[in-house]
């Protein structure tokens, strides 16, 4: 074989600019040799070479050298990175994602405790922790503000009958009826006057 002194060679692909590459015969050759142009050897070739030479079959992957199939770390970097494989950047991104996930988990647990009302049950330790930071345990005792509180006696809410009624409850109680009937209405006018025939 002799001593090999490899020269600087331009990267392949220069033939595409040659007139013989894309003339009628050139196209025929490229289409006829399409299978050769796309062929891939099987993985067994390297295994046979490694066995013949007594080499480990996956030495390059173990050493972190570029492979045809990237390692999980490179795939992860492809997922998160923008052309960088710096492990520091990758770890920082992982830490950021982890912190966000932990925050979502804690907020979710807190909401679960407050909304489920099971403060002292299975998640009591979380309730105790919330109490230490100022959140009262007996959430059920918290009352709505006075303006939002429902009155104890709701009978006054039924002021107007559904159907036609008489004007003035006091007058009806005294036996004096008005010839004008009031019909509950809707919209801006609370009632309209109906003149009996």
């Amino acid at each position: 074989m002799g001593e090999a002194r490899s020269s600087q060679v331009r990267p392949s692909g220069g033939a595409t600019r040659h007139p013989w590459y894309d003339d009628r015969l050139g196209r025929s050759m490229r289409t006829g040799l399409a299978e050769v142009r796309a062929a891939q050897p099987s993985d067994d070739v390297w295994k046979a070479i490694a066995a013949e030479l007594g080499l480990p079959a996956d030495a390059a992957a173990a050493a972190g050298l570029p492979q045809t199939s990237p390692s999980w770390l490179v795939r992860l970097a492809q997922l998160f990175g923008h052309g960088r494989t710096d492990r520091t950047v990758l770890l920082a991104r992982l830490a950021s994602v982890g912190a966000m996930a932990a925050a979502v988990f804690v907020v979710g647990l807190s909401l679960d405790v407050v909304l489920s009302g099971k403060a002292a049950s299975g998640l009591g330790w979380t309730t105790a922790g919330l109490h230490q930071i100022g959140v009262p345990i007996d959430e059920a005792a918290i009352q709505p503000s006075p303006q939002n509180r429902a009155p104890a006696d709701m009978s006054a809410a039924q002021t107007w009958p559904r159907t036609g009624g008489t004007a003035g409850a006091g007058s009806a109680a005294s036996g004096h009826t008005s010839p004008l009937a009031l019909v509950p209405g809707f919209g801006r006018s609370p009632a309209r006057v109906v003149v009996p025939r």
Partner: peptide, 23 residues
């Protein structure tokens, strides 16, 4: 004698060489 370096050379060039051999 670095096996990893030799395998990396193989991974880098084997497809092109295979296509020449197949042709």
């Amino acid at each position: 004698g670095d096996a990893a370096a030799f395998e990396a050379l193989y991974r880098r060039h084997h497809v092109a060489l295979f296509r020449t051999a197949l042709g």
